[in-house]
Design a protein around this nucleic acid. Structure first.
Length: 580
DNA sequence: GCCGTTTTCGGCCCGACTGTTTTCAGTCG
């Protein structure tokens, strides 16, 4: 049983309890537990197996949850979940995806009308049975009918890079309104999450109505969901929701902090404030007197909000209530990686296989971007669709690289290969060829549906190969398109440590593989991460920024990322690891 | 369900907006 599976079970319990109108804090305890397990960085089964450790030592895991985790690990089942499922059909939870329908209203629909699915919900609305229920009326019924389409789309989250494009357009639009003094995008977009659910914009302006009118004129808006004194929500034709919040100057920082989140980070921060006799909300930080009177202290910018709590102004990417508060207390907040720290790109393709640009063009483009080194790593022959290289063509390419290198003095070109890990195990090119490479990437492209033992074994085999330097896109996932293949990452991490190998953070916005928590786990184990673009064109070299953002979310510093090293030091690192 | 230099019981972040109410519940972030 993996951590993900345990967390999923707890999330389901939380959903079902919520539906039954259980104590909201109890529901939160399950969601908290799920999150803590996901963030753990090691398998809970290892903690259980270790006599000297206890699950209850984990923050947010008490006796009850610990017992349930043990039941899941030992039996693969959770009695409590099975009981809940027998009381509430799983399909009713789909109703919670309808905007405006929460657990209370959904429960009424289930109990009073026997609605168990979205289809039955539509039916009940069309027959106008919903409007007669207590707490419902015609408007709610209409809103449900409208919201059904959104619910049927499922949980649609937009890749960060796509959200970034929309944010750019909205910012440009808003900047045309002269009454706006400050604008900041907030929410999960600002935290650099790999996918974004909706977009949040924070604005400082004197005249709220003017700003909201202008916001409403943004092309592509299909619906205004809500509009109040300070807050406006709209939906784009694509289905994506955008929220606008207008605040005065003295609240801008507090509102930015609040709107950036994450929710868990804010809950922790506000809980701490309360203990100190302070209150933090989107309007500012307030001193609360015994008689209940409140005095505004600060709120103009985020730094003074955090300073009021004796905390550093956390970079948005790590505001997840993972380790940031402990880091701050220990004075060990990491100085996160910056885009400008990156000196080399170690995964690129050319027209020799499926790239769009030639070797010469790729090297020129790398120089234009100020890179000190670039590895040319075309596919190996197994990747027939990409016209992968056999030994002969690869050696010919390396000769070409030698010739090109002679004409270069500002960039080092590494003779590399992205060598497939074959379905049956083993590398796609013979060792005597790999031995001649400057840089060998090992990748899984085929046999992604194999069972976890088999894929893990293949990757472990590659890590044992003395010529392999790194595993590319280690989980194979494509965001919103393909789940990661089944691989035991704990074993991969351990083998990487043992054989002194590196792991790739593939910066392609559709991959971002490793994900942030894997990066954090690798960091703790001291495994060097290499952020690579996997560029298949010259423009492909520009995706590095997405990889850097992901690395920051994992708490990585320049020291944790090998391609921040200048070329001489990187070369030494390679030699020190027994590579060529 | 978790947690504890105020507590082993009684707290648990906080506010905006809508639609249904006739003072507030539900939803959302």
């Amino acid at each position: 049983m993996t951590n993900q599976e345990i967390a999923a079970a707890f999330e389901q319990v939380a959903d079902l309890l919520e539906f039954q109108a259980a104590n909201p804090f109890r529901v939160r305890a399950y969601r908290n537990g799920a999150r803590k397990i996901i963030d753990l960085g090691e398998r809970v089964s290892e903690i259980i197996a270790d006599e000297s450790r206890r699950l209850t030592d984990l923050d947010g895991i008490g006796n009850d949850l610990a017992e349930k985790i043990e039941q899941l690990v030992t039996t693969g089942r959770l009695t409590q979940l099975e009981e809940l499922q027998s009381q509430v059909p799983a399909t009713v939870l789909a109703m919670l995806r309808v905007p405006g329908l929460g657990p209370k209203k959904a429960a009424v629909l289930f109990k009073e009308l026997g609605v168990e699915s979205l289809d039955q919900l539509r039916d009940a609305c069309e027959k106008q049975q919903v409007r007669d229920l207590k707490g419902f009326a015609a408007k709610t019924e209409e809103a449900i009918l409208k919201g059904l389409a959104i619910a049927e789309q499922g949980d649609k989250r937009t890749k960060w890079a796509e959200a970034d494009a929309i944010v750019g357009e909205v910012m440009e639009h808003l900047q045309n309104e002269k009454g706006i003094k400050q604008i900041e995008p907030a929410g999960s977009y600002r935290r650099g999450c790999e996918t974004v659910g909706d977009l949040d914009f924070l604005v400082e302006a004197a005249d709220v109505d003017v700003v909201m009118d202008h916001f409403g004129e943004f092309p592509g808006i299909s619906d205004v969901i809500a509009r109040g004194d300070t807050k406006m929500s709209v939906r784009l034709a694509s289905g994506m929701q955008m929220d606008l919040r207008v605040v005065p100057k003295e609240s801008f920082g507090a509102a930015l902090q609040y709107f950036t989140g994450s929710k868990a980070h804010n809950v922790e921060l506000r809980g701490r404030a309360k203990q100190r006799g302070l209150k933090i909300n989107e309007w500012g930080v307030f001193q609360v007197e015994e008689d209940g009177t409140e005095t505004y202290l600060v709120g103009r910018n985020e730094a003074e909000v955090y300073k009021a709590m004796d905390l550093p102004c956390f970079p948005p990417e790590i505001r997840e209530d993972r380790e940031e508060f402990q880091w701050a207390e220990a004075g060990k907040l990491p100085k996160l990686l910056e885009r400008s720290d990156i000196r080399g790109d170690l995964h690129t393709h050319t027209t020799a296989t499926d790239g769009k640009a030639t070797l010469v063009e790729m090297v020129a483009a790398a120089k234009e971007r100020g890179l000190e080194y670039i590895a040319i790593t075309d596919h190996s022959k197994r990747v027939t669709m990409a016209n992968g290289l056999d030994a002969k063509r690869l050696l010919a390419q390396w000769k070409e690289i030698d010739k090109l290198q002679e004409k270069q003095d500002s960039i080092k070109i590494l003779k590399g290969i992205e060598c497939d890990i074959l379905e049956k195990g083993g590398m796609d090119l013979p060792d005597d060829v790999l031995a001649q490479a400057d840089w060998v990437i090992a990748s899984v492209h085929y046999g992604q549906n194999q069972p976890i033992e088999q894929i893990t074994e293949r990757i472990l085999g590659a890590l044992e190969n003395p010529h392999v330097d790194i595993i590319a896109h280690p989980t194979g996932r494509l965001i919103n398109r393909r789940a990661p293949y089944a691989v035991d990452m704990d074993q991969v991490f351990k083998a990487a440590v043992k054989h002194k190998k590196m792991l790739e953070l593939n910066a392609n916005p559709a991959r971002l593989d490793l994900h942030d928590q894997h990066c954090a786990a690798a960091r703790k184990l001291g495994i060097p991460i290499v952020i690579s673009t996997d560029a298949h064109s010259t423009a492909g070299l520009d995706v590095m920024r997405y990889g850097v953002l992901q690395a920051r979310r994992g708490g990585l510093t320049a020291k944790d990322v090998a391609n921040t090293l200048p070329w001489e030091k990187f070369a030494k690192l390679l030699k020190g690891r027994g590579g060529q």
